[in-house]
């Protein structure tokens, strides 16, 4: 009896949590299928009408195809940059011995405390000086590496036994070889985590793409969505239809990498 009560309690808590997570998405979906008049008057969380044409209208309201392409190029560029550059820096901090290494790492940690907004204007000035306004370079290059990724990977690398490196080095493997053949394969879960974070950061980023792009040719999905929130009222049905379309890739990436992350953990567990 007591156990049943505990189970019931646990499920009640989980149910509340699930509802809290799902309802906003459901509301988004419901609103995306309403007419404009219904967005003012309807109070239902479940869909009451099915205006699928909202999706076509939202898609046609701005060059969303181009926005998607730009978002994908930008996100992939940033993810690739983070995976490569962060990993190289993290490896240096985890394994190489060089003067002031630990002090530099503390400085790097301190940089986590600097809000992004502080660096936005100087970064913008640099990008403008390079003539990168309204280019992919402006969208990607300033964000190719990030402190969070370096620290994440460095902590993971530091947890891999030094003996594995040593064994490889004794067998004649080069320093770069130990990095690519030992560290990288063993760190897949960390790379998957970083890839998820980087992709979501890049995909959802609004301020920087807004600042460095002007034309429809370079705009990203998130800025396209903002155009539904006009000065004279928001077209909620189209905004939500657009948001559903913009959320799908993020959810897909999360699901794919989530599986990889789990598998990665399983594999490393076996090797130990």
């Amino acid at each position: 009896m007591n156990r049943r009560a505990a189970t019931f309690g646990r499920h009640a808590v989980l149910l509340v949590g699930a509802v809290a997570v799902v309802v906003p998405f459901l509301w988004m979906f419901t609103t995306s299928l309403q007419t404009r008049a219904e967005t003012y008057t309807s109070t239902s969380v479940l869909p009451t009408s099915w205006h699928w044409e909202n999706y076509a209208h939202a898609w046609a309201a701005a060059p969303f195809g181009r926005y998607y392409l730009n978002s994908v190029v930008m996100a992939l560029g940033i993810v690739a940059g983070h995976l490569v550059l962060d990993a190289l820096a993290a490896y240096a901090f985890a394994r190489l011995r060089f003067p002031l290494r630990d002090q530099l790492f503390v400085v790097l940690l301190a940089m986590l405390l600097v809000p992004t907004f502080v660096t936005v204007i100087p970064a913008y000035s640099l990008v403008a000086g390079f003539g990168w306004i309204d280019t992919y370079a402006g969208l990607i290059v300033p964000r190719l590496a990030d402190v969070f990724g370096i620290i994440l990977l460095r902590q993971y690398f530091a947890g891999i036994p030094q003996e594995l490196d040593d064994a490889a080095r004794i067998d004649g493997c080069s320093r770069a070889g130990t990095f690519f053949r030992i560290m990288v394969p063993l760190s897949m879960p960390a790379f998957a985590t970083l890839a998820i974070f980087s992709f979501l950061f890049a995909w959802n980023d609004f301020l920087w793409p807004l600042l460095v792009t002007n034309s429809d040719e370079m705009r990203t999905v998130q800025i396209g969505l903002a155009s539904f929130e006009g000065r004279y009222g928001t077209t909620w049905n189209y905004l939500m239809a657009g948001t559903v379309m913009a959320t799908v890739p993020a959810i897909a990436v999360f699901m794919v990498f989530q599986r990889l992350l789990v598998r990665g953990i399983a594999m490393t567990g076996l090797k130990d």
């Binding site: 003539g131 309204d134 370079a137």
Partner: peptide
């Protein structure tokens, strides 16, 4: 590796969509 990184950066700059009208 460093050269590859530099090349990547250059490639990205090369992707720029022509001159900026805000020049």
């Amino acid at each position: 590796a460093a050269a590859a990184t530099a090349a990547l950066a250059l490639a990205l700059t090369g992707c720029s969509s022509g001159g900026s009208s805000t020049d």
